[in-house]
Design a binder for these strands. Structure first.
Lengths: 225, 225
DNA sequence: ACCTGAACACCGTTCAAGT
DNA sequence: ACCTGAACACCGTTCAAGT
């Protein structure tokens, strides 16, 4: 005799690694990496907590899977664009993805094997530089500079306690009031005359730094030819 | 009657916030952020674990204190150097500090109040740009670009499972063997013809990207005058 | 003012047992 | 082949009690 259908709203779907990783990403998106525990993940999947281990070796394996799935959301550089347009679009998409999943900057902490989405992304980026006229060494430099900048920018952005211009203004005003202007004159000036200007948004800095790097890479490309 | 001196090698020194934070940094340097637990920190300080809470509000407070102490290790930009030299030296020092304390890229995760060492460092960097002829907006762009790059580079560096050229070569060879060259031709090419070249060290990329950004900032400076 | 010990509400992970 | 329940060795943090 089969057990009677439990009166859960959720139908019992068979678990697999992809569903586990997807639910883990949803938990981390909602509450950060701290909110992601194996027990809560089990709950979310309507399964006893420890069943997750049938689909994932351990938490590190789970985090790597999450990082790779997130990498899969990044738009690959297009073959039909010139290198600069292609890299620019891909960098903006990368940044968007990290804004959507801020925990992802931190998830792949230690050096473990990258997943297939990550490998494909890296391969296409390097290929875009190579086909755009970069030497192998120059492509390595370019790749390192661009992705370091994107990661670092996302980290700084994440650490800011505000996002909208209104929040920013409110926070900056408080900060400025606490800040002894005599001790930190330049910080005070920057806050008063720049951050507190209407419409200021830290995220606007992203494209400025990115274009600065892309300009530099264009010179490097020519030198490397 | 005073209790007899316990036969510990460590003399009983009075605890304070600085000693607590110093011991916490030593633990994190040795074993990463995972190795830093309040209980182990108590052990290290020859004190019952929970006494730490007399000097630190909670673990987040501790991590912020650690981050600020590490920021204090960064050489401030010198007044006697021109802006580019000063920022370059300070950036190299920042990078050195993050290599010494790799956990620090991740420690100040959420947006909390920066400490005095952090504020002083930021103030001096912005001041260096301002005195070097950057407009307020340009100084903000410059600061964001440089520090994003430094943070992001340190994160990428940390995630690599090798450091010495020998380790790198060994790892790259294994990676290359696993890597289906047909799926990832450009990654395979880069690994074979660049990473496996004798003397390759990822950390050498740091100055290349940094100088590229400094070149770009020099143009921005002139435009902003 | 600082330190202690017990306790609470959690963690990740293992393992024998079930189906 | 997958899921469960109990258990183990940990966590961060609170709090009354000591000195």
């Amino acid at each position: 005799m089969t057990p009677p259908r439990k009166s859960t709203s959720e139908p019992r779907v068979r678990l697999n690694k992809e569903r586990v990783i997807g639910a883990a990403i949803a938990l981390a998106d909602a509450g950060g990496l701290d909110a992601l525990t194996m027990r809560r993940l089990g709950d979310e999947l309507n399964v006893e907590a420890m069943s997750v281990y049938n689909h994932v070796a351990n938490k590190e394996d789970l985090l790597n899977g999450m990082a790779d799935m997130v990498f899969g959301e990044i738009k690959l550089p297009s073959h039909s664009d010139d290198w600069r347009t292609a890299i620019r679009k891909r960098s903006i998409s990368f940044h968007d993805v990290l804004v959507r999943h801020p925990w992802a900057t931190t998830a792949r902490d230690s050096g473990t094997n990258p997943g297939t989405a990550t490998l494909r992304n890296h391969d296409r980026v390097i290929g875009t530089f190579r086909n755009g006229g970069f030497s192998i060494a120059a492509a390595a430099h370019a790749f390192s500079a661009v992705d370091s900048y994107i990661y670092g920018f996302a980290m700084q952005e994440k650490s800011l306690p505000f996002t909208t211009p209104e929040e920013t203004a409110a926070m900056a005003a408080i900060l400025l009031a606490q800040l002894p202007a005599s001790d930190y004159p330049y910080l005070a000036e920057l806050t008063a005359d720049h951050v507190l200007k209407p419409g200021y948004r830290y995220s606007d800095e992203f494209l400025i730094g990115l274009d600065l790097i892309l300009d530099g890479l264009d010179s490097m490309r020519i030198e490397s030819q």
